[in-house]
Design a protein around this nucleic acid. Structure first.
Lengths: 198, 198
DNA sequence: CTCAGTTCGTACCGATCAGTTCGATGATGT
DNA sequence: ACATCATCGAACTGATCGGTACGAACTGAG
């Protein structure tokens, strides 16, 4: 009774395993590009199990996106933290890390961006909106530490660069998007010094 | 013989009419969100006609996207041209026009961005890539007229802001994305003066 | 061992989809 | 008036989809 040690076969583990295995498939094939049947086969689980855990395909998609959002956010935050205390260095590290991502052969754009463009479903849009919220918070925090006159405005400008770079990398300039975004971000930093305006 | 004056019922006109009528439906419902049957019914044309003109649903989609790309490019170029000769004013006018677009109730993101995220089909990706090419050319031209030290680099930075703003407007901050992008763009302009670097 | 709950595999359901076919209809050019 | 061709409308095909149902196999606890 102190701890039932999970029930039979650890539902928590099963659920997480399904999410982890389904995520890359949904990412590379698109949300509508793979059916539930093939998805289950590749994950190594029966349809009944999937439907009991997630209720519906959209439920699975939502869970996958939420997990991915948290993973990606932690990854970006980690890259910034590993760059030290200088906000300028942190920003540079974030865009360098993004560029490294763009050049991975499996890169197919941001999963949240793609999902929101594919599924007009309310729940999916909400996950993407929350994801952008988290990312904005992260960038605004850097803007604050950089001593920006208007950290909120600078944070939102940086968000445009990050999302724009990811989109352009996916569809137009995989090799240079992160680099140009980094240059722009670093140029915006001094432009937002307190003495700069008014 | 001097000019056959078109054949019977003007195939050119019919084709253009199908494209014009199908475009908003594909835009608001998504490429996979509406079937060929309903599409034809709403357009007011039979499936046979559509398939004779475009061969396949993807063919129709490609034609719709190409038409839209040209229309949008001309629209943006017109907004810049109408703002006079000052590159700074042109840039401001472009982002103001974008912000006006974001606030239209029918705004659902950039059709090319959405299409590329939905259809991994080669032809669709190519249309989106060409679209971004045109847009980059337009922005680079403004950067050149602004006397940027590296017009290509500045053009690509501006492209990130335009695409980022459109994406963020669609999924996160419809009211402010264009405004923040404009501020960032105007801040990047002086930062790219020839005296600024090296 | 026994019982209960989980999972699997497979078959099935109703709906929808892209694309084809075909006879009826209408307009065009001669 | 006649022949031609685009178009329509509607039926049809074969495939795929999300979701459900069910018996068999497996797992764990008492």
């Amino acid at each position: 009774m102190p701890v039932p040690k999970g029930s039979t076969i650890d539902p928590e583990r099963t659920r997480a395993g399904i999410i982890d295995a389904a995520a890359p498939l949904l990412y590379e094939r698109g949300l509508d590009g793979i059916g539930v049947a093939e998805l289950c086969a590749r994950v190594g689980v029966s349809k009944e199990t999937v439907y009991r855990y997630f209720g519906t395909k959209d439920g699975l998609i939502q869970a996958v996106l939420e997990a991915r959002s948290e993973r990606v956010t932690a990854w970006i935050a980690g890259a910034a933290a590993a760059a030290g205390d200088d906000p300028r260095e942190q920003l540079a590290a974030v865009f360098d890390e993004l560029q490294r991502w763009y050049e991975e052969p499996t890169f197919r754009g941001c999963a949240m961006q793609n999902a929101a463009a594919q599924h007009q479903v309310e729940a999916v849009q909400a996950v993407t909106a929350r994801h952008l919220d988290r990312r904005l918070g992260l960038l605004t925090a850097i803007a604050e530490r950089a001593g920006a006159a208007d950290p909120d405005a600078l944070g939102r400008q940086l968000l445009l660069l990050v999302e724009g770079a990811t989109l352009v990398a996916a569809h137009h300039d995989r090799a240079g998007a992160g680099h140009h975004a980094k240059q722009a971000a670093l140029a915006l930093l001094p432009a937002n010094r307190p003495s700069g305006r008014r």
